[in-house]
C-alpha cells in the first residue's frame, strides 16, 4: 500500500465503478456496515484517503440522486472498502437493503479528506457523533499504521446500544465514550467529556452540525486546530452543480471538492 501522505490528492483519478457487496452486517437497527469489492476482479481498488467519500448510485423509483457516504474503512489486502450507512431515508434504506452478491455503482474517491498528518500532531483526538464516527475509523487506522501515532477516539451517542464499532476503534486507539443517558462511559454530550481536560494536538470531528460547532468553539478557546467533516446535501459530488456550498472566509465553496473536511478557521461559524 502506498503511504497515504505520498498521494497527491489533486491528481487522484476518479472512477465510476461497479462494486459487489461482499458482506452486509446490520450492526444496529438503524445502521448497516457494507463491505464492497470492485465487481471486475481485474480492477484494483482505487486509492482512498481518510475522510474521502463515495457517491452511491441508488436504483429505485423513490429517489433520483446519488447518496454521498464517507469511507469507513479500506482493506487493501482484501480489495474492499466499507461503508457505515445510517437509515436516514429512502436512499440510504435502499443501500442498506443490498445483499451479498448485489451490485452497487460507486463514484470515488471524492473530496479532499483529512489531509496530511503533521509530525507534530502526536496527540490527535478523533471525535465522532452518531454515524459521524464513520470516517474516524479509517483515519485512526491510518494514523496508527502509517504514523505510529495512537489516536484517541471520543464517541458520542444517545445510549450504549448506539455506540458503533467500539472494538474496531479500540484496535487503533484509546476510546472514550459519552452517552446522553449515561448507559456507557460518561453521561452527557461529547462536549462535556473529561477528555477536554487533557492536552491534544489536533481535533478531528464528524457528526451533527450543532455538535461540530460546539467542538469548534471549545477548540477555539484552547487554540487547538480543529478539522470538521461536513455533510451538506449534494447532487453531483464533482464540483459541477455548486449545490453543496459552505460559506468560508474565501466565499462559498463546494463541500464535495474543497471539503468535506474543513479547518474550522476557514469557516464562518
Amino acid at each position: 500500500m502506498q503511504p497515504i501522505d505520498t498521494i497527491d490528492r489533486d491528481i487522484m483519478k476518479k472512477y465510476c465503478l461497479d462494486f459487489t457487496v461482499v458482506n452486509n452486517e446490520a450492526i444496529h437497527e438503524l445502521y448497516s456496515l457494507l463491505t464492497l469489492t470492485p465487481s471486475d476482479s481485474s480492477t484494483s481498488l482505487p486509492d482512498i484517503l481518510p475522510g474521502q467519500f463515495v457517491q452511491v448510485r441508488v436504483d429505485n423509483a423513490e429517489t433520483f440522486l446519488r447518496r454521498p457516504i464517507s469511507v469507513n474503512d479500506v482493506d487493501r489486502d482484501n480489495h474492499t472498502l466499507s461503508l457505515l450507512v445510517r437509515n436516514a431515508g429512502e436512499g440510504s434504506r435502499w443501500i442498506m437493503n443490498r445483499r451479498q452478491g448485489d451490485t452497487v455503482n460507486l463514484m470515488l474517491p471524492l473530496g479532499n479528506g483529512f489531509g496530511n498528518i503533521a509530525e507534530s500532531d502526536n496527540r490527535p483526538l478523533l471525535v465522532g457523533g452518531g454515524v459521524g464516527i464513520a470516517p474516524m475509523l479509517y483515519l485512526g487506522k491510518c494514523m496508527s499504521l502509517q504514523h505510529r501515532v495512537r489516536p484517541a477516539f471520543l464517541v458520542g451517542a444517545r445510549s450504549a446500544s448506539d455506540v458503533l464499532q467500539l472494538q474496531s476503534l479500540q484496535q487503533w486507539g484509546d476510546v472514550f465514550v459519552t452517552t446522553e443517558d449515561g448507559t456507557m462511559g460518561e453521561k452527557g454530550l461529547v462536549t462535556a467529556s473529561s477528555v477536554w481536560n487533557e492536552e491534544w494536538t489536533t481535533v478531528y470531528c464528524c457528526g451533527p452540525a450543532p455538535m461540530m460547532k460546539a467542538i469548534a468553539q471549545i477548540c477555539k478557546k484552547k487554540s487547538l486546530p480543529c478539522k470538521v467533516s461536513l455533510e451538506n446535501m449534494m447532487a453531483c459530488g464533482l464540483g459541477a452543480c455548486l449545490c453543496c456550498v459552505e460559506k468560508t472566509v474565501r466565499g462559498n465553496v463546494c463541500v464535495c471538492t474543497e471539503g468535506p473536511v474543513f479547518d474550522t478557521a476557514d469557516l464562518t461559524w
Partner: peptide, 18 residues
C-alpha cells in the same frame, strides 16, 4: 450565488437555486 440550501431532490428530478 444564493445561500445554502440550494438543492432539493424531488420526484424524478431536483430543484436548484444556485
Amino acid at each position: 450565488g444564493n445561500d445554502y440550501p440550494r438543492m432539493a431532490e424531488t420526484p424524478a428530478g431536483m430543484l436548484n437555486a444556485v
